[in-house]
């Protein structure tokens, strides 16, 4: 997935926010265009068909939600990431019902925003591009290359040990399914399962989280299932 091929449209009225975001995205290798109003943004999207649109919910010429709906009505199908300051559930629901694909609340962490952008792009374009490769596994916004044993997030490579890589791969193969510690021991540690204990699993999971989670104190990728074991989110 070459991020240089992706063109992202930013519709955001605040110049300071837009410019810092542009900087962040461009440094990741994305091409960006910034429009400060909804009308301009839609017009630009119609003409240039960007790969992804980051849309602020509060714009000088109207609500981002209305522009989102207008874009969907005019057959613009690219992923839309809404930016909002209201944390309320209603915004989330409305944003998604209006056709948005994801939302983030301001202030956001740049890392997390980039992670969401990558995940949206991969979901819309990435997996199609690598449809023939059985060696590539996607977990959240990470790419696992089974041939090389490498895990990357954007341009960044994550240094996982072989056990951690096997652990993450095993989760990826059983996406969303709760796995018991015994299952994990059998699958990841294999023959040595009988000498390892549940505690080993806990320790490895914790270390893996510290490497792959955006905020390791608030895990979002590998979740503990009380009374059972673990599962990979999504």
């Amino acid at each position: 997935m070459n991020q240089n091929n992706f063109h992202i449209l930013l519709i955001e009225d605040d110049a300071a926010v837009a410019q810092s975001l542009q900087d962040g995205l461009e440094r990741e290798g994305f091409a960006t265009t910034w429009k400060a109003s909804g009308v301009e943004g839609i017009e630009y999207a119609r003409m240039h068909n960007p790969h992804l649109i980051v849309l602020d919910i509060r714009l000088p010429d109207g609500s981002g939600l209305d522009f989102c709906r207008q874009m969907r009505q005019s057959k613009l199908h690219q992923p839309i990431l809404m930016l909002t300051v209201q944390r309320e559930e209603i915004d989330k629901v409305l944003g998604l019902e209006m056709g948005a694909d994801d939302y983030m609340t301001k202030p956001y962490s740049l890392r997390e925003l980039l992670s969401r952008v990558r995940a949206l792009l991969r979901r819309s374009y990435g997996e199609l591009a690598t449809i023939n490769s059985n060696d590539i596994i996607y977990v959240a916004d990470m790419v696992l290359d089974r041939a090389s044993g490498q895990v990357s997030r954007g341009n960044e490579s994550l240094n996982l040990t072989p056990i951690e890589f096997r652990l993450l791969s095993f989760f990826a193969q059983n996406r969303g399914q709760a796995l018991s510690r015994q299952q994990i021991l059998d699958a990841v540690w294999g023959y040595s399962a009988d000498v390892e204990s549940d505690r080993t699993v806990n320790v490895h999971i914790r270390r893996l989280r510290e490497k792959i989670e955006l905020d390791p104190s608030q895990p979002q990728i590998i979740l503990t299932v009380p009374g059972i074991g673990y599962r990979l989110a999504g």
Binding site: D14, A16, V17, S20, L21, G24, V85, K106, P107, Y108
Partner: peptide, 10 residues
């Protein structure tokens, strides 16, 4: 939140 967002991103 708007200036805080810009500040944090920068």
């Amino acid at each position: 939140h708007t200036p805080l967002t810009a500040l944090r991103t920068n």
